[in-house]
């Protein structure tokens, strides 16, 4: 198989580069390979789009859950503060 054909068929490598590109600058060669692949592969174009959506969702999920209602119960907190006071008294 020619080099170009390999690049065009290899969705495994293309999706690897898609993930890498979201976190780091690709090398010149990697960038060219990815562009050639995406020019001819609708499935990986879709993967690229969905992968970015997933990243955004993950970030929103984590940041919104930091603000949400999940809290420690009061009994646990009271007990915890009591332990801290105890430890402070022992010093």
């Amino acid at each position: 198989m020619s080099y170009l054909k390999k690049v065009i068929y290899n969705c495994k490598q293309a999706t690897f580069l898609i993930e890498k590109k979201q976190l780091k600058r690709l090398s010149f060669r990697e960038e060219i390979e990815l562009r050639i692949h995406l020019a001819g592969c609708g499935m990986c174009v879709l993967y690229n789009k969905q992968s970015r959506v997933i990243n955004n969702m993950v970030q929103q999920l984590f940041h919104s859950s930091l603000k949400n209602e999940l809290k420690l119960d009061d009994a646990f907190k009271a007990d915890l503060q009591a332990r801290i006071e105890e430890a402070l008294d022992n010093n």
Partner: peptide
């Protein structure tokens, strides 16, 4: 430390 639980426990838990 007397105020730790009230101020930070929920944040750290999340």
């Amino acid at each position: 430390p007397h105020k730790w639980v009230a101020a930070y426990a929920d944040y750290l838990y999340m």
